[in-house]
Design a binder for these strands. Structure first.
Lengths: 132, 132
DNA sequence: AAGTAGTTTAGAACGATTTTAAAGTAAAAA
DNA sequence: TTTTTACTTTAAAATCGTTCTAAACTACTT
């Protein structure tokens, strides 16, 4: 399925700007990035667009499940092109994130989901620190 | 150990402002809060201080391990008085966090920590969604 | 071809957090 | 003690990521 079809399927009108972003993000390669990182990639690709459009697009893509947003207490939002359930190492000092494939973690026992809720995904974060 | 001793032990000068905050936070009760929540509690206790002091103090307390900061992509930093390793349910729609005791989760298999790093704590986040 | 609903844009606005630099305070030294 | 020193607090300004605004534009439908 090409990117135009992916956007249509997600209910998003495939505008010029969204296609530029889709061509960068939806290439099957897993990566973490911020809105600013993406803006730089857009510019390097010879295109340009308003930062508001980039934020709008990231929010739409995320809400449609085309990308994920990583849970992180950094001051800048971090997005992830890996939309499969997976986990992360986090170096809290640098903010660096490293993917952990889902099968690398075995969650043997999980607590009961609170009454009236359903499980919507599990994320394991292993905080790591550089050894001296 | 009283709060003055706790601050001293953490290498923090027990100033009037830090004692006010310690008296609110270090009472052994587990809770999640933002800087603004804390300011409201300070005000309700008949005290007051600059918001800059509150942020400075939260950062110092966190760096000393007296409190934790929760990994969350919300736009407001969330702190946690529960400093033991534990986990959370997160309702992504409301931002509500619910504690999960460490023994409620059994991490059977963990990936190898990257070369040159050491494990600095594991946090499991179970995202939950209200059922319709 | 015309209509309409959704999208992009630059720039203003926003809100959480940090910085500034001056005044204040706790601890250490004399 | 008193003096000195280093640390802390403060209000206000600044910063920075992100969102809003409202006007211009564009994709799709009729």
């Amino acid at each position: 399925m090409n990117n135009k079809e992916k956007l249509r399927k997600a209910g998003l009108r495939p505008t010029k700007q969204r296609m530029i972003i889709a061509d960068i993000l939806l290439d099957g390669i897993n990566r973490h990035f911020t809105a600013e990182n993406l803006q730089n990639e857009i510019n390097s690709s010879g295109n340009s667009m308003s930062i508001a459009t980039i934020y709008n697009c990231l929010k739409k893509f995320r809400n449609c499940g085309l990308i994920k947003q990583v849970e992180s207490s950094k001051d800048t939002a971090i997005f992830d092109t890996n939309i499969n359930q997976h986990h992360h190492f986090l170096d809290e000092e640098t903010g660096e994130l490293i993917d952990i494939e889902n099968q690398e973690v075995n969650l043997h026992k999980l607590p009961k989901i609170p009454q009236g809720y359903r499980n919507n995904g599990v994320e394991v974060l292993i905080k790591i620190k550089k050894q001296i």
